[in-house]
């Protein structure tokens, strides 16, 4: 699942159309979904972002293979052309710094961003936004650093009064191809095949329930050894479980030996 977060409705509009997302009313936030994505509109500013992202991730706790992408507009110095999409590698907030890991190739310009408290009309040396640091903080509790990406599209050169709702919709729409690519890249690096499929996990769970905690942990290790060493081989078939404690211990020993020989 890809979690897409925007601060504004206008930032979400083109994404909702592009990914054919439908409205979901589970949370007291503006939420859209399809099978692959969930999109949340957090509202403007750090407090809104922190609360909304925490609520979303607490409601639907991410799986290890999920990722989160923050998409929005930002003000920037005039070295950054309006309409350019930036991929953020460093977020400043006062003395604090946050670093998403960019572990995939991409063609966007990378940049630092300063996360500020209000709309900024004073020139700054960095692009600025109002939510990224809070989104990072809320997300880092649920995602690894390479499973988060922050894509910011330059909307103005510190002239926020020129940024209309229609303009924002258009800026995001004209960068959908970039959003597609970042989503695909982050999704790919986030992918991690679980060692055991669902059926295997259930069988392993059943098997472990016959042993003590320490024995179950030794069995877990042996199964992981077997799967990592012989990825093509099927797990040995489920054994008959004897009633006596001593025989069960012998069975475990034999199982571990078979798996790790």
């Amino acid at each position: 699942m890809i979690y897409i977060i925007t601060a504004l409705d206008a930032e979400a509009r083109a994404l909702i159309d592009h990914y054919h997302l439908t409205r979901d009313f589970t949370l007291p936030y503006t939420l859209y979904k399809n099978e692959r994505m969930v999109l949340l509109v957090s509202g403007m500013g750090k407090t809104n972002a922190l609360m909304a992202v925490s609520a979303l991730l607490g409601w639907r706790i991410p799986n290890p293979a999920d990722c989160l992408i923050n998409i929005g507009v930002c003000g920037a110095p005039d070295a950054y052309p309006i309409g350019e999409a930036l991929l953020i590698h460093q977020i400043f907030e006062g003395d604090r710094r946050y670093y998403p890991d960019i572990l995939y190739p991409h063609s966007l310009r990378e940049s630092s961003i300063k996360c500020v408290d209000g709309v900024q009309s004073v020139l700054d040396e960095y692009p600025v936004d109002m939510e990224s640091s809070a989104m990072f903080q809320a997300s880092a509790r649920f995602f690894k650093l390479h499973q988060m990406a922050f894509v910011k599209i330059v909307s103005d050169h510190f002239t926020p009064e020129t940024v209309t709702k229609e303009r924002v919709i258009e800026l995001i729409r004209s960068n959908l191809h970039n959003v597609d690519k970042v989503c695909a890249a982050v999704e790919k690096v986030s992918l991690s095949d679980p060692l055991f499929d669902q059926t295997e996990q259930e069988e392993i769970g059943r098997l472990k329930s016959h042993f003590t905690k320490a024995q179950a942990s030794a069995l877990d290790d042996a199964l992981s050894y077997f799967r990592l060493k012989y990825p093509q081989k099927r797990l040995p078939s489920y054994p008959d479980i004897p009633d006596s404690k001593r025989e069960r211990s012998q069975l475990l020993e034999a199982l571990i030996k078979t798996l790790t020989h």
Binding site: R97, Y99, D101, L103, F143, K144, L145, V189
Partner: peptide, 16 residues
């Protein structure tokens, strides 16, 4: 600030 961040993935970083 970078090396000691929490929530890093050693496995994923090994590829990049």
């Amino acid at each position: 600030e970078v090396f000691n961040r929490s929530s890093q993935s050693f496995a994923a970083q090994s590829n990049s």
